[in-house]
Simulated assay, not measured.
Amino acid sequence: MTTFPSFGAETSGSEVAAAFSEQVRGKHVLVVGVSPGSLGEHMAEAIASHKPELLLLASRSLEKINTVISQIRTKEASKNVEIRAINLDLSSLESVRTAAQEINSLTPKLDVVINNAAINVPDRQLTKDGLEMHFATNHIGLFLLTNLLLPKIEEAAKATEKKGATRIVNVTSAGHRLSPIRFSDYNFERTELPVDERPPPGLPLSIVHPDKPYSSFLGYAQSKTANILFSVSLTEKLKGKGIVSYSVHPGSIWTGLSRNLDEEGQSMIKQTSKVWKNGDQGAATALVAALDPSLDEPQGAYMSDCQLAQAAEFAIDGKVAERLWHLSEKLVGQDFIL
């Protein structure tokens, strides 16, 4: 159970950060995926208002990060916070390794990592590393980045007596329910799949078509399932070191993530929720997952509307999580023995 059962869909990130101000003070925090109008911007602004020692902001555009930093600086409570911008393209393994090296050079520890970055593209694309774009950017890039930063995360855990206060938060989506991990076809090249890799029955042809291997909805969903399974693995492997990971569904928020959807896609998204949040409200669940001391002891892998919630069974299966871990190691060309 969280500290504040009253927190819910309408709670703002600003409220959460204020409630856990002491958990922010003096921390070194990394927020991945920061640009004007994004959830990352709202997370960064809320955190910056409560005296972290260092705030690291990573994204594809340094210009956009610096716009966010300038906005943060206009507020009295955060104008003196040390903030650093890091260029990071999660679709490129080379860029991830370069960014990780830079982050590691900027700080002796990382108390909180919020992996917020994600893309949603309408057409099938492969990265230069040969991976489907959603899976590469929303999971594989974050898998590699987080593992390369683990020595700094472990240093933070060693430096605090509060086991579980060191957190890795992966932003996922309720849309993960549309697809398990397609281990035999993560790049969406086939229409025939093993039973345990198929989407749930009953989905419309606009999402699952018998003659079309690729669906942007399924590509996105697979990557969001991977985010949850990544949290399952991280907590299992690191809880003995005082590190806990949660994945969070921020809620339905109309952000730039939907900008690449066609008219049909946007229409479908608009029908997925009766409650639409603003950006500050969308940041709230990630901040609860990152800061709430009641969550120091692992209590599951998935949160929604600022509370623990139930994910699809295929997204929280420990054996599937371990299988994804090994696949991810293979795809990045590096083993991580935790």
Rank of each mutant, 00 (worst) to 15 (best):
M1K: 03
T3V: 04
F4Y: 15
E10H: 08
G13Q: 13
V16W: 04
V16C: 12
A17H: 06
A18R: 13
A19R: 12
K27V: 10
L30S: 04
G33D: 12
G37C: 09
E41L: 06
A46E: 05
I47W: 06
A48Q: 06
S49G: 00
H50D: 03
K51S: 14
P52K: 13
E53T: 01
L56D: 02
L57A: 01
A58D: 00
R60V: 05
R60Y: 09
S61D: 04
K64F: 01
K64H: 15
K64W: 00
I65R: 10
R73H: 09
R73P: 01
K75E: 00
E76C: 00
E76Q: 13
S78K: 13
K79M: 05
N80V: 02
V81L: 08
I83E: 03
L88S: 06
L93H: 08
S95N: 09
R97C: 00
T98I: 09
T98G: 00
A100P: 00
V112D: 07
I114P: 01
N120G: 01
N120D: 04
Q125N: 02
T127V: 13
K128P: 00
D129E: 15
D129Y: 09
A136G: 04
H139R: 08
G141P: 05
L145F: 11
L145W: 05
L149K: 04
L150D: 14
E161T: 12
A165G: 12
T166C: 03
V169S: 01
V171F: 06
V171W: 04
S173L: 10
S173F: 03
A174D: 15
S179R: 11
P180N: 10
N187E: 11
E189T: 15
E192F: 09
R198M: 15
P204M: 10
V208T: 14
P210S: 14
K212T: 02
S216G: 00
L218P: 06
G219Q: 12
Y220P: 06
Y220A: 11
Q222P: 06
T225A: 07
N227W: 03
S231E: 03
T235L: 05
G240H: 07
V244Y: 13
V244S: 01
S247Y: 03
G251T: 11
T255M: 01
G256W: 08
L257S: 08
N260Y: 05
D262H: 12
G265L: 08
S267Y: 03
S267R: 14
M268Q: 12
M268D: 01
S273I: 07
K274N: 07
N278F: 10
N278L: 07
N278M: 12
N278G: 11
Q281D: 03
G282S: 06
G282F: 02
A284E: 11
L287F: 07
L287T: 11
A289Q: 13
L291R: 08
D296I: 02
E297T: 15
P298R: 15
A301Q: 04
M303K: 13
S304E: 13
Q307N: 14
Q307Y: 02
A309T: 01
A311P: 03
A311H: 09
A315D: 04
G318H: 11
K330L: 09
V332I: 14
Q334E: 15
D335V: 15
D335W: 04
